[in-house]
């Protein structure tokens, strides 16, 4: 009886997590450019994975430590990877969607061309 209730709660939490993951995937398909896709992907996958892991914990309480490490790992690496993806995308000049209303980074690079020389710097270093 008790075990069933616990497993039901775990199942519901894991289900909510997978709904977030599903919405994130729909976001990946619907968003107009890379940057907005990263927005949808990062957030949904972080909370979705966390909730799925917490839900699984109700089924296997003895794996507590491993789940803690999983959550920490996702929480630390997810924003870093999405930031690196976005930064790389920006520096190889992947276009922003026409809906974009402002691009301060481009303005900054026009004023301060030293800083926009990121690609040039990489090239000269490789020589």
């Amino acid at each position: 009886m008790d075990k069933e209730i616990v497993e039901l709660i775990g199942g519901i939490i894991a289900l909510i997590g997978s709904i977030f993951l599903l919405l994130g995937s729909i976001g990946l398909l619907r968003m107009p450019d890379s940057y907005n896709r990263i927005q949808a992907g990062t957030k949904a996958s972080t909370l979705g994975t966390m909730l799925s892991v917490v839900g699984t914990w109700f089924f296997a309480p003895e794996w507590f430590g491993k789940f803690i490490i999983l959550i920490l790992f996702v929480l630390i690496t997810n924003p870093v990877s999405s930031h690196v993806l976005a930064r790389a995308a920006y520096h190889i000049k992947i276009p922003l969607t026409p809906k974009t209303i402002v691009d301060k980074l481009k303005e900054r690079q026009l004023i301060d061309p030293e800083r926009s020389a990121y690609r040039k710097k990489v090239k000269t270093q490789n020589k």
Binding site: M31, D33, N36, L96, V102, K104
Partner: peptide, 12 residues
């Protein structure tokens, strides 16, 4: 994501 009109207003 689920709103049909996709209400985004992006910028940097």
């Amino acid at each position: 994501v689920v709103t049909p009109s996709l209400p985004i207003n992006p910028g940097i």
